[in-house]
Structures are given as C-alpha cells and as structure tokens.
C-alpha cells in the first residue's frame, strides 16, 4: 500500500496511509503514515462504531496538513476496544 501512496505522491497528490504494521512502513516509507496496532482487516476500528472510524479519518486527514517532513509515522495510541470516542469536531484544515 505504501508503494501506491508513493506513486500518487510522486504524481503530485498528497497522501496519508493508515497501517497496522509499523515495521513495514519504516521500510517502504509512505509519505505520511498513521499507525494503529489493531487487528488486520480493521484499519478504522470496530464494525458499527462510526465515532471511532471518523476519529481515524479526522486524525489521518489532519496529517495531510500538519506533517512537516516526508516519511513521518504518527501514532495516536488508541486502544482497539474500550476507548471512548466522541464524534470529531473541527474539519477546517
């Protein structure tokens, strides 16, 4: 996936990649990465938990604006379950 991000970025498209394995991102080096150590197949969280999913989207899109240098990996350190998510506010990036 990082390879697709790199191709898009090289073509002039800003990218942010959500990954579950930091070790691969460290080697492939997507331009901007959000690492969540959650089970495979659940990059945005639990089924039915829209607030959790939107928090991941909000966090990732914000990185399109705040990542200051190429190749950074961001970790919100959210737990997979038992985390309370409020709907994210403030989308004016």
């Amino acid at each position: 996936m990082g390879l697709i991000a790199r191709a898009a970025e090289a073509a002039g498209i800003a990218t942010v990649s959500i990954v579950g394995l930091r070790e691969i991102a460290e080697r492939v080096r997507p331009p901007r990465t959000v690492h969540l150590k959650w089970p495979f197949g659940h990059p945005l969280g639990e089924p039915g938990n829209a607030a959790q999913q939107l928090n991941v989207i909000h966090y990732a899109l914000e990185k399109l604006y705040t990542a200051e240098e190429p190749g950074l990996i961001f970790e919100p350190d959210w737990r997979w379950r038992r985390e309370r998510y409020a709907l994210p506010e403030g989308w004016d990036f």
Binding site: M1, I4, A5, A8, I13, A14, T15, V16, S17, I18, V19, G20, P30, F40, G41, P43, L44, I57, A60, L61, L64
Partner: peptide, 10 residues
C-alpha cells in the same frame, strides 16, 4: 483533478 488520497490496508 484529485488533490489528496487516503489509503487503507486489508
């Protein structure tokens, strides 16, 4: 005209 791309894994 796409400006930005969000990517997710399997």
């Amino acid at each position: 005209g796409v400006d930005a791309l969000l990517l997710t894994p399997g």
